[in-house]
Design a protein around this nucleic acid. Structure first.
Length: 270
DNA sequence: AATGGGACCTGCGCGC
DNA sequence: TGCGCGCAGGTCCCAT
């Protein structure tokens, strides 16, 4: 479900709702989603810890936890395809439910069980975080052009590569390429400076707009208050196969690239 | 290095 | 109604 704008929306919602709360209990209804350490150790470590700060890196949500008696710990949450964080939660259908010091629940729901929860002593212990590419907002055109110039692969799968650039998923890759008028099939290194510049600023604009509308609720994604984001209303190509392009009225096409559905306008995107 | 396939999972919508 | 198929916002792992 969640790409950068969805995770950022959840982060902001939780920041306002649960920062400063203590975790009193952890109910694990499906240990499959606990990737480290063991489920028992996971709850033991978390009990009594205070949620002091919440941040985001790429699509990963990170809770920084503290207590007087223990060293700082990090709870990493990757929602993958169908994960949700809902507060206050019901605890019923949750894979994992955190009981907080105010008696309310923070639910981790995940229909497809692909999500991951981890407790780490240090962020450097996460190989995924260590390998994560830069946040789109931190890049400039010159760096981005240079990064692209070294890669022979197609631009769209490259945008999905989290070690190349972090936070972009299937929806926003498609929307950004449409906005930049670049075909998803172009080889990365063939983009001119002008095109790379346009692509970077399209990515940033699309992500910011999506954050403004609190993410795209296509099927599973909800905000931390359980309500939907509205950005799907503004998608120009994603999920619009056969529908007229908003710019030139040609039919939007869907092809498969790197095993992922890829939507684009064959007329506008070159 | 790049690409393709399958794996991990559950559930939905479609055509027959 | 029921079945089989393809598909899904992500990532990893293997083979070529």
């Amino acid at each position: 479900m969640p790409e950068l704008p969805e995770v950022e929306t959840i982060k902001r919602g939780l920041e306002a709702a649960i920062c400063g709360r203590r975790i009193i209990d952890v109910v694990i209804n499906n240990p499959k989603v606990i990737k480290a350490p063991s489920a028992d150790r996971f709850s033991h470590l978390l009990k009594g810890m205070r949620i002091s700060r919440i941040f985001r890196r790429g699509k990963v949500l990170i809770f920084s936890l503290s207590s007087k008696r223990h060293k700082e710990l990090f709870l990493l949450i990757h929602l993958r395809m169908s994960g949700q964080l809902v507060y206050p939660g019901q605890g019923i259908k949750a894979r994992v439910s955190f009981k907080l010091s105010n008696g309310k629940l923070l639910d981790f729901n995940d229909q497809r069980l692909l999500g991951e929860l981890k407790v780490l002593k240090r962020l450097e212990d996460s190989l995924f975080l260590r390998r994560l590419g830069p946040e789109p907002f931190d890049l400039n055109s010159r760096d981005f052009t240079k990064m692209l110039s070294k890669r022979k692969t197609r631009i769209k799968p490259l945008l999905l590569d989290q070690s190349f650039i972090s936070g972009i998923g299937n929806i926003y890759a498609a929307e950004s390429l449409f906005r930049a008028k670049i075909s998803p099939q172009r080889r990365a290194a063939t983009l001119t400076y002008r095109q790379a510049d346009r692509l970077l600023y399209s990515i940033i604009a699309v992500l910011k707009e999506a954050i403004k509308y609190k993410g795209s609720s296509v099927s599973q994604y909800v905000k931390s208050d359980g309500k939907q984001g509205r950005y799907a209303l503004y998608h120009k190509v994603y999920n619009r196969k056969g529908k007229p392009c908003f710019s030139c009225r040609s039919k939007i096409e869907r092809i498969s690239l790197g095993g992922r559905g890829t939507y684009f306008c064959p007329q506008c995107q070159k």
